[in-house]
Design a protein around this nucleic acid. Structure first.
Length: 694
RNA sequence: GCCACCGUAGCUCAGUGGUAGAGCACACCCUUGGUAAGGGUGAGGUCAUGGGUUCGAGUCCCAUCGGUGGCUCCA
């Protein structure tokens, strides 16, 4: 007879099998009423699930009574259940839709649908669908689980003839399921049902608040060559208040969007006439980028790197040898072809179709906009012989590369067609590999710490032993993977090992951050490479006076300047720390009478290499403050007759909605100079006002 | 590349087949004001581009370009 262990460690004994709901009722009537489901031995289940044997049971309620927040299990139950309700509503409104797959996801749920040919799903349909959903929820129909044997279930599915549901069932069976289950929203044989493993909330009425969010397309099994499906996204919460909070959070996040802020703060511009995914850095954005480049260059010099410059193009043959062409041809701009060569082809009667074919197969001479910097750096390494005494050679460049990204994937600064990698290639001996990878990691650490980036995850990409796409000796791989794992472990942040995420030429360590909309972007990367040294027959002379093959490390702590700045804009919500801020100080004169003193203050800051402007427009001070605040300038110096008399400035700092008081011009210049030089580890606020930065 | 939605002044947006609008920004004038927008006047648009329907198109239809959200891809 089941002994039930509850989360607080207490034990309840029953003299017969009980449902999770009965366990809840045994604890209290209120809990029985509130519970949405239960975890039984850690597995999320329906409240109606019968417990036969001893088990650990936790009841899932819509939200925590103390915090008012919903747990992930409660949300998963609500959202998955809401997906069913939405599917029923859609099928009711638009006949002929086939259901495919409808899971709960991080911020809600979706349902993939196969639409009838003549009837696309549109945004205008949302309100009708939501109305129907509200009706189903108001009816408060029970979610009823109907279970049957595999053979019986498959018979039923085949009779219904939905290839998508048959496929889902076959996958469940392949995964070891011994039965198939349906969930009916209501009474079996009377109400709507869907093949589903569950679990669900007890009844439709328990879905507190929901909203259909957006419509998108998807592919069956995620395969672009397979059926195209319509994906309807929605979200659900325990109550209306939480839904409202979520929608407000989304709106707030939208204001941090780097594309919006980039326009407001005049950081960058993308021009239709220049081209998709081609970033024009405006003066303000260029300052941020240059400061970052200066910062990283300083660290590189400390670590013994050599800076190099290389051109934006190279001969096709170079990229044939490196393997970039034609292997990665789909994501490259087409080759640049010598006009004389092109003319010769034309004279020989080459048709456009033939030319296209030549381009595809690579049977053509020309130049390529470089998709990566490594071949050029390799050629610098290989331009002279190397002794083991020279190694490691560390070549660094802010190297601009070009990639032909799919049009639908381009957007803002995070996915572009031309970007600059804070690239470097390290050539070292096997013995030096571990130390060099460590060096790369410490660089990433310094950068992330200086910028206060904490919300990132680390992924160690390892080879998939089942795949044969990898190059290089197995023993080298073993060693390189061990090096990466050990280095990642020493980093002091959690990391995940992902099998199959290695590059074909070696394992890698990636740094991944989320943007304001929750999308993940790979920033920094460190990759060990055995392939290119082989392809380019690189060598160094060892202590044994014999040539040896060096190992290469590719590494880019920012990833690309474009993506990194995009992520930084959102990280700081446009309010850059003083050392990065395009405009560090704005001097605001009270009236024209203080113009001369305002100029004096500005010139004093100029002389200290501070980025400063003077607002001597005839607006009132309130208006000047409003405008400067909107531009997120770190420091505003209000100057009037009073300040001029004492050679002082009245300071207003971003984040403090008040006058912090007057300090001498001299002390302000000194304090802000230190703040900038220390990249924010010392601040004007603590030096002059004993306040913490807001 | 695929599906849905969108494209009106430098920016944010209104305008559902009948004379192109507002706020901000910009220019000029008044105001000389001590901490989150003082007042007035003016200039500024081939309504993304190209076709079509219509007596008449910013508005309806088609195509192209570009943007947004997903999908797929991402060395």
């Amino acid at each position: 007879m089941p002994r039930i262990t509850l989360p607080d460690g207490s034990i309840r004994e029953f003299d017969r099998p009980v449902t999770a709901h009965e366990v809840a009722a045994d604890i209290g009537a209120g809990l029985a009423k509130a519970a949405l489901g239960a975890t039984i031995n850690g597995e999320l289940c329906d409240l109606s699930t019968t417990i036969q044997a001893d088990a650990t049971v936790a009841l899932i309620t819509p939200m925590d009574r103390k915090t008012g927040e919903s747990g992930t299990e409660a949300l998963a139950l609500l959202r998955h259940s809401c997906a069913h309700v939405m599917a029923e509503a859609v099928q009711c409104i638009i006949p002929g839709i086939q259901l495919v797959y409808g899971p709960a996801v991080e911020n809600g749920f979706y349902y993939d649908l196969s639409m009838p040919d003549d009837r696309p799903l549109r945004q205008e349909d949302f309100s009708a669908i939501e109305k129907e959903m509200a009706r189903i929820i108001a009816e408060d129909r029970p979610f009823t689980r109907v279970e049957c044997s595999v053979s019986e279930g498959m018979g039923k599915l085949k009779a219904e003839g939905s290839k998508y549901k048959i496929d889902n069932a076959e996958r469940a069976i392949a995964a070891g399921s011994e039965t198939l289950s349906w969930y009916v929203t209501g009474e079996p044989n009377q109400h709507w049902e869907d093949l589903c493993r569950g679990p669900h909330v007890p009844s439709t009425g328990r879905i507190g608040a929901f909203k259909i969010m957006s419509i998108a397309s998807s592919y069956w099994h995620g395969d672009a060559n397979s059926d195209r499906l319509t994906r309807l996204y929605g979200t659900a919460f325990a109550d209306k208040k939480q839904l409202k909070q979520y929608l407000e959070r989304l709106e707030e996040a939208g204001k941090r969007d780097h594309r919006i802020l980039g326009k407001q703060l005049k950081l960058f511009h993308i021009d239709e006439e220049v081209g998709q995914g081609l970033i024009l850095w405006m003066p303000n954005g260029a300052i941020v980028r240059r400061e970052l480049e200066t910062f990283i260059s300083t660290e590189l010099i400390k670590q013994g790197y050599s800076m190099v410059y290389t051109p934006h193009i190279g001969k096709l043959d170079l990229y044939r040898r490196s393997g970039h062409f034609p292997y990665y041809q789909d994501s490259q701009y087409p080759p640049l072809i010598n006009p004389d060569y092109l003319r010769k082809l034309a004279d020989d009667g080459c048709t456009c179709a033939e030319l296209s074919n030549h381009l595809r197969t690579g049977e053509i001479d020309g130049y390529l906009l470089k998709p990566m910097n490594c071949p050029h750096h390799i050629k610098i390494y290989d331009s002279q012989p190397h002794s083991y005494r020279d190694l490691p050679v560390r070549l660094a460049e802010f190297g601009t590369v070009y990639r032909w990204e799919q049009s639908g994937e381009i957007g803002g600064l995070t996915r572009v067609r031309c970007f600059t990698v804070d690239d470097a290639h390290l050539f070292c001996t096997e013995d030096q590999l571990a130390q060099e990878v460590q060096g790369c990691l410490s660089l990433v650490k310094i950068i992330f710490r200086t910028l206060g980036l904490e919300n990132y995850r680390v992924r160690v990409g390892l080879r998939d032993p089942k795949s044969d796409k990898y190059v290089g000796e197995s023993s080298n791989w073993d060693r390189a993977e061990a090096v990466c794992l050990e280095a990642a472990g020493s980093l002091g942040v959690p990391f995940v090992e992902e099998i199959g995420e290695a590059a074909f030429y070696g394992p890698k360590i990636d740094f991944i951050v989320k943007d304001v909309l929750g999308r993940e972007w790979q920033l920094g990367t460190i990759q060990v490479d055995y392939n290119l040294p082989e392809r380019f027959d690189l060598s160094y002379i060892g202590p044994d006076n014999q040539p040896h093959r060096p190992v290469m490390i590719h590494r880019a702590p920012f990833g690309s300047m474009e993506r990194f700045v995009g992520v930084l804009i959102e990280h700081f919500a446009g309010a850059f720390p003083t050392w990065l801020a395009p405009e560090q100080v704005r001097v605001l004169t009270i009236s024209e009478k203080s113009l001369a003193y305002g100029q004096k203050v500005r010139d004093a800051l100029f002389a200290a290499s501070i980025r400063v402007t003077l607002d001597n427009s005839d607006d009132r001070i309130q208006a000047k403050i409003k405008v400067a605040t909107d531009m997120k300038i770190p420091f505003l110096l209000v100057v009037g007759p009073r300040d001029a008399e004492q050679n002082a400035v009245s300071v207003r700092s971003r984040g403090y909605r008040q006058d912090l008081g007057a300090v001498s011009l001299e002390s302000f210049v000194e304090a802000i100079g230190r703040e900038i030089a220390s990249r924010g580890s010392e601040t004007v606020l603590t030096a002059l006002f004993e306040k913490q930065p807001a």
